[in-house]
Design a protein around this nucleic acid. Structure first.
Lengths: 268, 268
DNA sequence: CGTTGCATTGAGGCAGTTCAATGGGTGTGG
DNA sequence: CCACACCCATTGAACTGCCTCAATGCAACG
């Protein structure tokens, strides 16, 4: 069995033991497919589940009664989503597929297993959550203090960075299956204005943004326009420690007797 | 010893054992005082510490090279701050005291102790982190899709809610030690415009916002103006489980031999 | 009693919105 | 294979919410 995006992204942070991989794999046992545009989980609905994104792009969006829509977060393969909701009884946001998507739901109670038996995974889970919090913080800076041009540029760089973490990314080409409306709803603008900004960026010879992909023509200029001020954001995982000699207990895989333990190669 | 804000806020979520309280107390052993306006930890500086706020208000702000400033988060007593930074080598934001403040720094390595020995606290830690993520998400909706009037109203309601969790709050009076510049930097506006909005709210008889406190005159109207769409956000802590019969081990209090274990009353 | 920091108010400007029309690509059914 | 529908992107014109700049007020404090 090849490792999933989820396992890969955790493994990149701390080298995972056999048992830890088995636990993560056990979260991806219920793959479910959705079409582009489908609602995976609706705002205000009862939430007891988290999801692992196996394939495709999803978004979390918040809408109010006037129909105003704001995209809070874009989710790529390997992300665990719905974490924002674990604290609450009902969903704060709608989870929606942007492309054809495969997600794997799992009940939030399973996190207890992780907290109890896999302290190192708890650490990585928190670390990734905090990385996401940092991204949200940058988005807040964006919305509060950057103009439209900088927001678009900055968003492209963010996506490029994140794609590097989750999949392959060709140097100057960024896959971008979002419509201009999606971009507008993410960046707090209107699609009309997004269109004008994109035109300007094309005329300036900085990036060529099309539906489906963005072509970076002048990376250096793009960074300047984005007013990116967090170059120093290298991940620091050095402080995470814990027993890596975790054994696979029954308890750890409770409710998932078919967890792919047996299919794992013996060594690491 | 009376319980600190931190212990109280955790204890409200799950009823804490003796040992769990001892661990939380051990995070508050190095109280340090700051004056209003002091930088507690500077953006881009090396970060290996988290802080518990014991008294006073602090903010996290991000600035860029042009001097633009955006406040990401307001921190009240009982909050653990700096969590956003645990994933990184350098700080994303500046931590600054708004009022005279007492904070207690502790090294992030101590979190490993929690992950290893206190799974239930790990759960609550994550739960509180996700609650904070929900607040950031609401702020993103604010900045992206609400006008200045709604932002101010919404912010007041958020603070009122959070003060209820951390301290006492008189029904129609909210303590608010922020300047109009702080409000502007939080809500992505200018202080000039904040001043106009506040005047309008006063003339409308909705709230009277002064330096130091806000007086809510018409709570119902305030909610309408805030376009608050998350009434359903009750906390749900039911899924958190774990061994509450945790014992106090040496390891758990490592480096803090004087943890107030002995001072705790025996029973719960 | 001047200084300092914050709040208030006015006048003018602009980034981004709203409304509305047009174009272009893609899939579908006749 | 064409015709139609649909969705998305593009463009223009007029408008507006908020900003910028700048002056004034006002309270606290040494």
């Amino acid at each position: 069995m090849t490792d999933s995006c989820l396992v890969q992204s955790y493994d990149r942070i701390v080298s995972l033991s056999h048992a830890e991989k088995a636990f993560l794999h056990s979260l991806e046992e219920q793959p479910t497919d959705f079409n582009a545009g489908d609602v995976i989980a609706a705002q205000a609905s009862h939430c007891d589940q988290l999801f692992v994104v196996s394939q495709g792009w999803c978004i979390s969006e918040i809408a109010d009664d006037t129909g105003q829509c704001q995209i809070i977060d874009v989710h790529l393969p390997g992300d665990i989503i719905g974490t924002r909701e674990v604290a609450f009884a009902r969903r704060l946001s709608t989870l929606r597929a942007v492309t054809p998507t495969t997600v794997c739901p799992f009940p939030r109670r399973r996190l207890n297993t992780m907290f109890r038996d896999a302290p190192r995974l708890s650490g990585v889970f928190v670390l990734i959550a905090m990385q996401r919090e940092a991204i949200l913080s940058e988005r807040i800076f964006d919305l509060g203090r950057r103009d439209a041009l900088a927001r678009v540029c900055h968003f492209l760089l963010e996506i490029q960075e994140r794609l590097k973490d989750s999949c392959t990314v060709d140097g100057h080409e960024i896959q971008l299956p979002l419509t201009q409306q999606h971009l507008a709803d993410t960046l707090g603008l209107t699609s009309v204005h997004i269109s004008r900004v994109i035109r300007r960026l094309r005329e300036m010879g900085v990036v060529d943004i099309k539906r489906g992909q963005a072509l970076i023509l002048d990376p250096k200029r793009l960074r300047v326009l984005a007013r990116k001020n967090e170059e120093y954001l290298e991940l620091d995982t050095s402080w995470i420690e814990g027993t890596s000699a975790l054994t696979v207990s029954e308890a750890m895989l409770d409710g998932f007797p078919d967890a792919p333990v047996a299919e794992q190669p013996p060594g690491e």
